[in-house]
Design a protein around this nucleic acid. Structure first.
Lengths: 349, 349
DNA sequence: CTGAAAGCGCTAACAC
DNA sequence: GTGTTAGCGCTTTCAG
């Protein structure tokens, strides 16, 4: 039987109210009694019971994380950031993985409406409009990460900027025929990245050649899949001499497919066609893929912070934070920087 | 203000005790009143308050998942299985990612000792002996996944069998000089995989050539890293004509590094040196890596089930379940099967 | 500043 | 079968 505040109260010769006050850093406690209570609590190895606390205060000390189960890497990194911050705040994270859009609403209902959590972190998915509206009755704060809705705090990456940077880089390397291998343009991120591409071209005074832009028609994960990268790369290769010398790819995972297609065709990456991906998934590093890095960890940390702030001050204005992605130069772009020798590893046996 | 059992009791003209019984499927309630209560509850859109329930019954309807934060893929897949099963049981999952061994104990203490959860799923890490012992006082069930300790239920993969299968496959393809690129043999999985390798060789009547076995000395993630794969592959290549014609690699991530080293040396994979990995991480598929697949999803499902069973029957005997890994033939082994043309994708534009 | 007392919403033991 | 009652461990008035 773990110790309760009654045990502490008895041993410290105070009332339970005082113990509670000490434990909650309530100001009106004399330094003397505070110290005494704290000492007893620590001696007894006391841990507050979260449920009792939750019942009495209607705070739960837990948040819900609703994440899509189809984007491994992204979640993984971002989540580290979230947890780093939340652990510090002594909050628990209830995880809810979603495979199908239908489950999104279920998760929200299930947890939020039962006030099992104080707040929600909602990742990379479209917030169901129905819920967004109905949510107005609710007070549980929701922070959107890699997703946007005007009624909620959100953190997103500047995809246009990313597409722009990727294209500029290729252009600066001397490429004239730069194309874009895009995901389904139904997807907002894909569209924005494409816009960045076009903008960079325009600035460089290069007219957009429609044959150099191909986008997936797959609705599956909006074409963000290696199959789509493979298929579209094949199309580019079929163009023969009219094919691009460099390609901006709208996601690393598509770049993986594109790379495979290149290899199958007996072509080499920076030499025959240079590539810049998007996302900087773990794999990118292993593949030597030049790409656009999204500050996922930082986003996770900030998401936790924003949620925390809103919990303390529910009426503050809604904020929309935009992150700037960063170009990571590796080998697939054929840049000078990548011509250095491979890292030497200590040998082991 | 969400409805409580008092609201239901009033409207259904019964006592709160009866409402509680109905809600908990207690047998001694007449069909009549049960139906009436249920109708009111549904009309009021009643949801039990998990914390109140938890306080009163000292059941939490939540489990803790302690996962290592350095193995992305593995956790991801297994977790899907866990959740598929647990969602069904209407349990919440509190996630606790661990970056440093020290945090393991903290997480356990923090959650278990405060009885915030009914049970724990503990992944891929060494259970701290101190905790294991002290745990005897506790009643919170713990199930180990991809980890072993005699005092706890566990699910593990038969690594020896996997190493054996990988080696057999290479042997059956006609290779005579088959080597092993192993992780740190301090790690039990690495050791078991190596044993499987040796066993297959022995059965085939091939003497073990020590120069054909190299293992990482890195303690980091026990040498399960692409750097270690890269470094050791270089060593193999330095052997010149005495180098192996095929290699069993103790993890896919190492195979990635090995593949890179091969490429840098201007060599090709199935042709110059054939490779079989271990794990079947998502990446393996993209790379065409022949490997040993661990049934991660299934392990997740079963882990949830075992935990659930133990919760209902704490005194049942401890079970240790061993999974059989499966060979997945792709391209890097140079097997006939892989000689079929690449999958044709529907083109999109 | 501090003790006592009243719940938070629910379960479970106890009567009837 | 069903109502009543006593907590679960903690927070939060309300007195003093």
């Amino acid at each position: 039987m773990p110790p309760t505040i009654y045990d502490i109260a008895r041993e410290a010769k105070v009332g339970i109210g005082t113990v509670s006050r000490v434990l909650n850093n309530h100001p009106s406690v004399s330094e003397d009694t505070r110290a005494r209570v704290l000492r007893v609590a620590s001696r007894l190895n006391y841990r507050p019971h979260p449920y009792a606390r939750g019942l009495a205060s209607s705070r739960t000390n837990a948040i819900l994380a609703v994440i899509p189960f189809f984007t491994t890497f992204f979640f993984h990194e971002i989540f580290q950031g979230v947890q780093a911050r939340l652990r510090h705040l002594d909050w628990d994270i209830i995880l809810y993985g979603v495979n199908h859009p239908d489950q999104v609403e279920a998760s929200l209902r299930h947890n939020v409406l039962r006030n099992r959590v104080d707040g929600v972190l909602f990742f990379s998915m479209k917030m169901p409009e129905r819920f967004a509206e109905q949510y107005l009755d609710q007070k549980t704060p929701i922070v959107l990460v890699d997703a946007y809705h005007k009624n909620f705090d959100s953190l997103t990456v500047d995809n246009l900027q990313g597409g722009y940077a990727a294209t500029r880089h290729l252009l600066s390397l001397g490429h004239k025929r730069v194309g874009m291998l895009s995901a389904n343009i139904e997807s907002l991120p894909a569209r924005d990245r494409l816009s960045g591409f076009k903008q960079a071209l325009a600035e460089a005074g290069i007219p957009v050649d429609p044959s150099l832009i191909k986008s997936s028609a797959s609705p599956k994960p909006d074409g963000f899949a290696h199959e789509s990268g493979h298929a579209m790369m094949r199309q580019f290769l079929d163009m023969g001499s009219r094919k691009p010398t460099a390609l901006v790819v709208s996601s690393d995972i598509q770049a993986v497919g594109a790379l495979a297609a290149l290899k199958e065709a007996g072509l080499r990456c920076p030499d025959d066609i240079a590539l810049v991906g998007f996302d900087d998934i773990e794999l990118a590093q292993h593949l030597g893929l030049t790409t656009i890095h999204q500050p996922m960890y930082e986003m996770g940390v900030l998401a936790a912070e924003i949620l925390s702030e809103r919990l303390h001050n529910p009426s503050q204005e809604i904020t929309h934070k935009l992150f700037v992605p960063k170009l990571i130069v590796r080998e697939t772009c054929g840049s000078e920087v990548s011509k250095r020798p491979a890292t030497v590893e200590k040998h082991t046996a």
